[in-house]
Design a protein around this nucleic acid. Structure first.
Length: 507
RNA sequence: GGCCCGUUCGUCUAAGGGUUAGGACACCACCCUUUCACGGUGGUGAUACGAGUUCGAAUCUCGUACGGGCUACCA
């Protein structure tokens, strides 16, 4: 019988959640939901120096906006808590000490200065970053070479120390990555990673293994940047719990910016968001724009992310979250990194704006309008407007330029575009057209257009030449949806008023 | 430097030994539209290079080049 699928996303609360992070969540989520499993969010806050206030809450808000709700987390509870590693601190030491006892790890008392000295002594052009490994460990201060009594006494006196893994020499550690297949490493070139820090906190390496075990994680998906440390984790599994219990690994390809790994800087430099939602650094006050605030709908954001490194093998590209859950397969995730393309992202958003009913995003558009000084009072009218112009909008703020005139009558009508062909008979046409409008009961674009054309014909004027003036009167410029549809949405009274006031200004 | 991973149009990708190497974004042209868009049709454009295996290679193998990641008491 196979175990219930359990996956986790394990972010550090150090700042905003960028594209790559959200995609990692997404792939975890899709896999879990498809397998009927659980999606867990575990907060990896073992580095107190990097902790940033508000970052944890921010992560959950972003996930909520994306519609990727965890089954278990610091916010959602669960049977495997606590879900914050700092609150699990006490559970890690015993595993580290167990490793020391078995001879797989050792105490190291080297100070920061001693480590620096070792590194600068060994640093050469050919070896720019010397490691604490089998070649140097017997020259350092650790329990491998110190007499047992001295080690005991150092420990007794609470001498600051760490516990390091003792990397075996000449072993090949290999495993099968779900995405990459067989990957192997020679342990001789891997350093003796710190497992337990001087402050008693575990490093990522120890914590991830212990918690994945304790939380019964079955599949571990993470970014490709973790691939080089995978052998450390595999060895820890082997020493501590046995490899049979180890989760299946999948190292996801990176999302690249225009030059290398996508960074916050790229966003500022190239003018696109890299975070899910706006993130304000509490220390500097610096705000980094998010996709939400840039005017993306979550459906598009998630869809776009899913397709960055995966596709279902067909030519379909637009998928809802539900469809993704159904079609996703981790094996089809690509090996190579994908460069983020903002134009393509916008295209997804455009598709989703067209597809979604305006009720999904009207609140956000309302806020955009409010910021421009237009308060929306009539929701029914508002939705009608959004429905009419949504095909022309790529990002939510575009609604403003495509529909502000439904809420603000033009003060001055610029007749310049039609001046050359303007004459008294055309002006007369609009007077009589406007008069006829009063008696219309069937206020529909199609009937308005029919009436308009009939009247134009009997006045002996080409209807086409009257359409632009009509548009100018209703919206104030050369823009907007088809003119009679504007009139329909505007309503009888407002249409008549706008034509009247425009005629007063007409030459 | 060492280790690991990767490489199909500018970008995201399809094609798992036999296709005129397909689609999408972007770009260009035309059409639709007496506004601005949307939309429609078409076009430009790719298997990094070199060997090998094979009747046949984008696809398998090796090498080279290039790109990326890691190399902290950060994750």
């Amino acid at each position: 019988m196979s175990k219930k699928v359990r996956v986790r996303f394990a972010p550090s609360p150090t700042g905003g959640l960028h594209l790559g992070g959200v995609r990692t969540v997404l792939y975890n989520y899709l896999f879990a939901k498809q397998q009927g499993g659980d999606f867990i969010v575990r907060i990896e806050d073992t580095d107190q120096s990097r902790y940033v206030a508000g970052a944890e809450e921010y992560i959950f808000e972003t996930l909520k906006w994306c519609g990727l709700q965890p089954d278990e987390s610091t916010q959602h509870g669960g049977d495997f808590g606590p879900y914050r590693q700092s609150e699990r601190k006490e559970s890690y030491r015993k595993y580290a000490e167990d490793l020391v006892e078995k001879g797989f790890a050792y105490y190291a008392f080297d100070t920061g200065e001693e480590l620096d000295a070792m590194r600068s002594r060994l640093r050469t052009a050919d070896n720019p970053s010397p490691q604490y490994d089998r070649t140097v460990r017997m020259d350092m201060r650790n329990s491998l070479l110190l007499p047992k009594e001295e080690v005991d006494s150092l420990l007794q006196q609470d001498t600051p120390h760490v516990i390091r893994i003792k990397m075996p020499e000449g072993e090949t550690v290999s495993f099968t990555d779900v995405i990459r297949g067989e990957v192997s490493f020679d342990t001789s070139v891997i350093d003796d990673k710190v497992l337990l820090k001087a402050d008693g906190m575990p490093t990522y390496h120890l914590a991830v293994v212990v918690d994945d075990y304790l939380m019964q994680i079955t599949h571990a998906f993470r970014g490709e940047e973790w691939l080089p440390s995978a052998p450390v984790h595999i060895l820890l599994w082997r020493y501590l719990f046995g490899e049979e219990a180890m989760p299946q690994w999948a190292h996801l390809p990176l999302i690249l910016g225009p030059s290398g790994k996508l960074s916050k800087r790229d966003g500022a430099k190239y003018g696109f968001p890299v975070f899910g939602m706006n993130w304000k650094d509490p220390k500097t006050g610096e705000v980094t724009e998010g996709f939400k605030e840039a005017g993306f709908v979550p459906e598009a954001f998630v869809n776009m992310l899913a397709m960055l490194g995966w596709n279902d093998g067909t030519e379909e590209e637009v998928f809802s979250l539900e469809e993704l859950v159904q079609k996703f397969s981790i094996e089809k995730v690509h090996k190579g990194g994908a460069k983020f393309d903002f134009d393509k992202a916008k295209w997804f958003n455009h598709e989703w704006i067209k597809k979604l009913p305006p009720t999904n995003y009207k609140l956000q558009v309302k806020n955009i309008f409010a910021a421009k000084g237009v308060e929306i009072m009539d929701d029914v009218y508002f939705e009608k407007v959004l429905e009419l112009v949504k095909d022309r909008c790529t990002l939510l703020p575009d609604f403003w330029e495509h529909s502000f005139f439904f809420f603000k009558a033009p003060k001055e009508v610029d007749f310049t575009p039609v001046l050359a062909k303007w004459n008294v008979s055309k002006k007369d046409f609009f007077y009589s057209f406007n008069k006829t409008l009063h008696s219309i009961n069937d206020w529909k674009a199609s009937s308005l257009e029919t009436l308009f054309k009939q009247l134009a014909e009997s006045a002996g004027i080409k209807a086409g030449e009257l359409q632009l003036p009509m548009r100018l009167m209703l919206v104030g410029g050369k823009f907007g949806p088809p003119v009679f549809e504007i009139a329909e949405v505007l309503g009888k009274a407002e249409t008549i008023t706008r034509i009247e006031s425009a005629l007063e200004q007409a030459p």
